[in-house]
């Protein structure tokens, strides 16, 4: 399995999509996580993402390792943005390519769910009413 892992200011779906292209794959699943303009009915101005980069990359590689053990996935891209992000901005992209779609859907969901649980990345929410959480 080929793996692309990046944490940087600006990420694109295109980079992930290009990475997972493979002639032997018939199913490509992409999850794009973007910044929502509200949290629990409160208006959100922006998010600020920070990470413990060395450990975050290490934990992302562990997720890739688990994917490789569980499913016949050929390509996996995991991109996460850091810094100030505004509503509509891309925060995370997971892209998976496999021979068939079922595996790609399952693996993609596993990757984003696990990333949110284990990878040391934090968001700070800036609300329109001035509060910061």
């Amino acid at each position: 399995m080929d793996v692309l892992i990046k944490i940087k200011e600006i990420i694109t779906v295109q980079e992930a999509l290009e990475f997972i292209q493979a002639p032997e794959c018939g199913g490509e699943v992409i999850f794009a996580g973007t910044v929502r303009n509200h949290t629990k009915q409160r208006s959100v101005l922006k998010l600020f993402y920070e990470c413990y980069e060395a450990m975050a990359v290490s934990e992302m590689h562990k997720i890739a390792q688990q994917v490789q053990e569980k499913w016949p996935v050929q390509k996996l891209a995991m991109l996460h943005a850091i810094g100030d992000k505004y509503p509509g901005d891309l925060a995370v992209v997971i892209a998976v390519a496999s021979a068939h779609r079922g595996v790609a859907f399952d693996a993609c969901e596993f990757v984003i769910d696990t990333l949110k649980e284990t990878v040391p990345i934090w968001k700070k929410e800036f609300f329109a009413d001035g509060e910061i959480i």
């Binding site: 413990y52 975050a56 996460h80 925060a91 990333l115 949110k116 990878v119 040391p120």
Partner: peptide, 10 residues
């Protein structure tokens, strides 16, 4: 050594 509060990526 690092202190890791609840993560909130994604």
């Amino acid at each position: 050594i690092a202190v890791i509060p609840p993560v909130s990526g994604g």
